[in-house]
Computed example of a mutant assay.
Amino acid sequence: MSTSRRTVLAGATAGAAAAAGLAGTGTAYAAASPTGHSTTGHSPSRELFGRLADGTKVYRWTIANGGTRLKVLSYGGIVQSLEIPDRHGAAANISLGFDNLDDYVAESPYFGALIGRYGNRIAKGRFTLDGRSYQVPLNDGPNSLHGGDKGFDKQVWDVEPFSRGSDRGLVLRRISPDGEMGYPGTLKVKVTYTLTARGDWRIDYEATTDRATVANLTSHTYFNLAGEGSGSIDGHTLEMAAARYTPVDATLIPTGELARVSGTPFDFRRAKAIGEQARTPHEQVLYGKGLDHNWVLDKGSTSAPGYALTLTDPGSGRVMKMYTTEPGMQFYSGNFLDGTLAGTSGRLYRQGDGLCLESQHFPDSPNQPSFPSTVLRPGSTYRSTTVHTFSAR
Rank of each mutant, 00 (worst) to 15 (best):
L309S: 01
V105C: 06
T3Q: 15
H361L: 08
T255D: 13
A242W: 05
G275V: 01
E47S: 15
K188C: 13
L114A: 12
A212T: 12
L96K: 03
I253E: 05
V319M: 00
S163D: 14
K124T: 08
I115F: 13
T196E: 12
T221Q: 11
A207Q: 04
F223C: 02
I94S: 04
H361S: 14
I175G: 09
R244C: 02
Y307I: 03
Y205S: 12
E206P: 00
Y110V: 01
A207P: 00
Q135I: 05
G24D: 11
T374H: 00
T302L: 00
F49E: 08
E257M: 11
S133K: 14
Y222D: 05
H293W: 05
G24K: 02
R121N: 14
G15H: 11
A19P: 06
E107M: 11
G41F: 12
P34I: 04
G263E: 06
L337P: 08
T208S: 15
A17V: 08
L348E: 09
F49V: 03
Q80G: 11
L311I: 11
V79S: 03
G66L: 10
S262T: 15
E160I: 00
Q360R: 05
G328R: 00
M181Q: 08
P314H: 05
G334Q: 00
H146K: 03
N93C: 04
V58G: 04
S95L: 08
I122K: 04
S230H: 09
R5G: 01
N224E: 15
A10D: 02
T302Y: 00
K321T: 13
A273F: 06
G235P: 07
S380Y: 14
L82G: 03
E160S: 05
I115H: 11
G315V: 12
Q360A: 15
T208E: 14
G112Q: 06
R393D: 14
H388K: 08
T374I: 07
F152V: 07
I233A: 12
Y222H: 01
A106N: 12
L355V: 13
T186F: 06
H293M: 11
D99W: 07
S316G: 06
L22S: 10
S333Q: 11
A53D: 15
H220Y: 12
A243D: 13
S303P: 08
A91D: 10
T302S: 06
S333W: 08
G24E: 05
G227T: 01
R164S: 09
